[in-house]
Amino acid sequence: MSEEASGVVKKFLYINRKAPYGTVYALESLEVVLIAAAFDQDVSLAFFDDGVYQIAKGMDTKAIGQKNFSPTYKALGDYDINKIYVSKESLDARGLSKDDLMDLKYEDEDDDWAEKDSIHIVNSEELADLMDSQDVILSF
């Protein structure tokens, strides 16, 4: 990536509110996140409403002829994307809990590469605060 890209670090939030496969939003968002990771910004991801289904575990897409891109979320830690916020209200409404989600982790460089959880379950008030504190919000 070019040198001009470095410099000011802004807070970027990617908002994911759509289920995977039925529409292309989830995959598009993931690709943008991976591409933009090269710019070394302060990135957070939020999953709420049907977006929580994007990180559900146990997907098997063989029979629908689409690529199962859910394993790629597990690479986000390698891309230094480790702030993933998931709405408690959205999980509750869907009868889901953290156990139904993939185990997304990262290795903390500042803590002897200790493996830590990337996922934080938050309520709507915390999500509102998160959105309110951003420089850039990208919505999918």
């Binding site: 690529k67 891109f69 394993p71 597990k74 690479a75 390698d78 891309y79």
Partner: peptide, 15 residues
């Protein structure tokens, strides 16, 4: 095979 993507150079180098 594990992540369904080819990693970026930075990620590849680290890994």
């Amino acid at each position: 095979e594990e992540y369904q993507i080819a990693p970026a150079v930075r990620v590849l180098t680290k890994a």
